[in-house]
C-alpha cells in the first residue's frame, strides 16, 4: 500500500466525509467494509432532502457494521462513533469536541452544508483531520477542503473519472491542494490501512 502517503502520521483524530448526488452507493460500500472497532469518529455530511427527517440513517445502517447516529446539539464526538448530519440542520464541531447544530440559511444551496462541517472540524482537529469528498453536483465542500488543507489536514477526493457527478471533486481540486485522488475502493483501502496501523 505504498501509494498511500500515511508517512509517519497516524495520530489522526477524526474523518469527515462529504457527498452529494451519486455518493450513496460509495457511502454504503464504505460502511459495509469499515469494521466495528474502527477508532476514529467518522462525520458524514451528505446532501439530503430538507424536510424528510427519518429514513436516511436507517437506509445507511442496513449494511453498516457500526451504528450511525444523527447527533443532537452539544453531543460529544465519541471515539468509534459514526455520525450523519441531520436533515435541515448544519452540523458543526466545537472546540471541546462536541457537535453544535445550526439552522442558518442555506450554504451552497444546502443545509446541511459540507463546507460548514469541514471548516469547523478543521478548526478543531487541525492537522489531525482527514477530509474526504465524494461525488456531487455542486461546489459544496471545496471551500471546506481548502480550510482543511490550510490547517495541514489530509485531503482526499474521489477520482472525478469515477464519480457519477464530478463537479464536487473537481471544484475541490481547483480550490486547494488535494493529497490523494482515489477511487472509492482505494479510499476504503486507505481507511483500512490506517485502521491496521492504529491497531498496532
Amino acid at each position: 500500500m505504498s501509494k498511500f502517503r500515511l508517512s509517519s502520521q497516524t495520530n489522526y483524530k477524526a474523518v469527515v466525509i462529504g457527498g452529494s448526488a451519486g455518493s450513496f452507493q460509495s457511502v454504503t460500500k464504505l460502511l459495509a467494509t469499515i469494521p466495528s472497532d474502527f477508532e476514529l469518529p467518522i462525520l458524514f455530511c451528505l446532501h439530503r432532502l430538507k424536510h424528510v427527517r427519518n429514513g436516511f440513517v436507517e437506509a445507511l445502517s442496513i449494511k453498516s457494521n457500526k451504528a450511525i447516529v444523527e447527533p443532537l446539539d452539544k453531543e460529544p464526538v465519541r471515539t468509534n462513533g459514526v455520525y450523519l448530519a441531520p436533515a435541515n440542520y448544519h452540523m458543526c464541531v466545537e472546540l471541546g469536541n462536541t457537535f453544535s447544530l445550526a439552522t442558518d440559511g442555506l450554504v451552497n444551496n444546502s443545509r446541511p452544508s459540507i463546507d460548514l462541517t469541514f471548516e469547523t472540524a478543521a478548526y478543531v482537529y487541525r492537522d489531525k483531520l482527514i477530509g474526504i469528498l465524494l461525488s456531487g453536483a455542486n461546489k459544496d465542500g471545496a471551500y471546506g477542503m481548502k480550510k482543511i488543507k490550510e490547517k495541514n489536514g489530509l485531503t482526499i477526493v474521489q477520482d472525478p473519472d469515477e464519480s457519477m457527478i464530478n463537479a464536487m471533486p473537481t471544484a475541490a481540486l481547483a480550490a486547494t491542494e488535494i493529497d490523494m485522488v482515489l477511487k472509492v475502493d482505494e479510499i476504503i483501502d486507505f481507511l483500512m490501512t490506517l485502521h491496521k496501523q492504529m491497531k498496532r
Binding site: C92, E94, L95, S100, A102, D104, L116
Partner: peptide, 9 residues
Amino acid sequence: YAMSSFKRR
C-alpha cells in the same frame, strides 16, 4: 454564544 456559529455570523 456557540463559537462556530457566532464566528460565522
